[in-house]
C-alpha cells in the first residue's frame, strides 16, 4: 500500500482524490495564467499596430466559425469516448477517441489554411469605393493607386512579385501577438492530438485501456476540454472583437 499501482485510482489519499488528477487540475489552473498572459499581451497591443493588415482586413468569421464548431464537437466526442469506456465499450471508445483526434486534426488543418491565407493576404478593391467608407483603413492607405484609367486595385506586389500586404509575425503588432497566441493554442491542440492517438493505439494492446483504468483517458480528456475552452475565449476575444476599435 506504500505506493499505488500504476493507474490505480483507489489509493488511500488524504483527500480521497487521485494524485494524478489533482496534478492535472493544478496544471490547468497554471495554464490559465499562461494563456492569460498571452491574451493580455494581445489586448494591450490591440489597435497599436503601425501599418500592415488589421483584424478586420484578414479575418474570415464564417470559416473560423466552422473550425470553432469542429473543436466544440470534438469535445463532445471526447466526453462520449470517456463515457463509452466507463460503460465497458472498448469499441465505442475507440470510435469516439479516433473521431476526436480526427476533429482535432481538422481544426489544425483549418489553422494552417488560415495562417497561410493571412501570410498571403492581398488587397483588392474597386476604386469607386475609395472614400465611401466601405474600405478598411489599410485598403484606403493604398487608394493613391487609383489614378486615371485604373478601376480597381488588384493585389500589391513589389517588382519581384513579392506580396507586400501579407500578415506575418513580423509585419506588425497584430501579426506578432495574433500568431503567437493562436500558435500556442495550436501547439496545445497538436500535443493533445498526439496524446489521444497514443491512447488510441495503446488500446489495441490487451488490458492496457480498460474501464478500471479510465483515469488515463480522463486526464487526456480534461486536457482536451481545456484546450477547447481556451479556444472559446480566443474565438470571442480575438476574432469576434477583432473588428472593434478600442475594445
Amino acid at each position: 500500500m506504500a505506493t499505488a499501482a500504476h493507474g490505480g485510482e483507489h489509493e488511500a489519499t488524504t483527500t480521497g482524490l487521485n494524485h494524478r488528477k489533482m496534478l492535472m487540475w493544478a496544471f490547468l489552473g497554471s495554464d490559465c495564467m499562461f494563456f492569460g498572459s498571452l491574451i493580455a499581451t494581445y489586448l494591450v497591443y490591440k489597435g497599436k499596430s503601425k501599418g500592415g493588415p488589421q483584424p478586420i482586413d484578414v479575418f474570415d468569421i464564417p470559416v473560423t466559425s466552422v473550425s470553432t464548431f469542429v473543436l466544440l464537437m470534438s469535445s463532445m466526442s471526447m466526453v462520449l469516448a470517456y463515457s463509452a469506456l466507463t460503460r465497458g465499450s472498448l469499441k465505442g471508445f475507440r470510435i469516439w477517441i479516433a473521431s476526436t483526434a480526427i476533429m482535432g486534426m481538422t481544426f489544425l488543418a483549418f489553422q494552417v489554411f488560415e495562417f497561410n491565407d493571412f501570410v498571403n493576404y492581398e488587397v483588392h478593391f474597386k476604386c469607386e469605393e475609395v472614400g465611401t467608407g466601405s474600405l478598411t483603413e489599410f485598403e484606403e492607405s493604398f487608394s493613391d493607386r487609383c489614378v486615371d484609367g485604373v478601376d480597381e486595385v488588384d493585389g500589391i506586389h513589389d517588382s519581384e512579385g513579392n506580396n507586400l500586404t501579407g500578415l506575418t509575425p513580423k509585419t506588425n503588432l497584430f501579426g506578432t501577438t495574433f500568431f503567437t497566441l493562436t500558435g500556442f493554442h495550436g501547439a496545445h491542440v497538436t500535443l493533445g492530438v498526439i496524446w489521444l492517438l497514443s491512447i488510441f493505439f495503446y488500446s489495441f494492446r490487451r488490458g492496457r485501456v480498460t474501464p478500471e483504468r479510465h483515469l488515463d483517458v480522463d486526464l487526456a480528456a480534461l486536457y482536451w476540454h481545456f484546450v477547447d475552452v481556451v479556444w472559446i475565449v480566443i474565438f470571442t476575444v480575438v476574432y469576434l472583437f477583432g473588428v472593434f476599435e478600442g475594445f
Binding site: Y45, K48, P169, K170, N172, L173, T176, T180
Partner: peptide, 18 residues
C-alpha cells in the same frame, strides 16, 4: 525569444510596441 529569433515586434518600440 521570438523577438530575438524570429523578428517579432513584442518589445520593438519602432513597431508601436511598449
Amino acid at each position: 525569444m521570438f523577438d530575438r529569433f524570429f523578428g517579432t515586434n513584442f518589445f520593438v518600440p519602432g513597431a508601436g510596441a511598449n
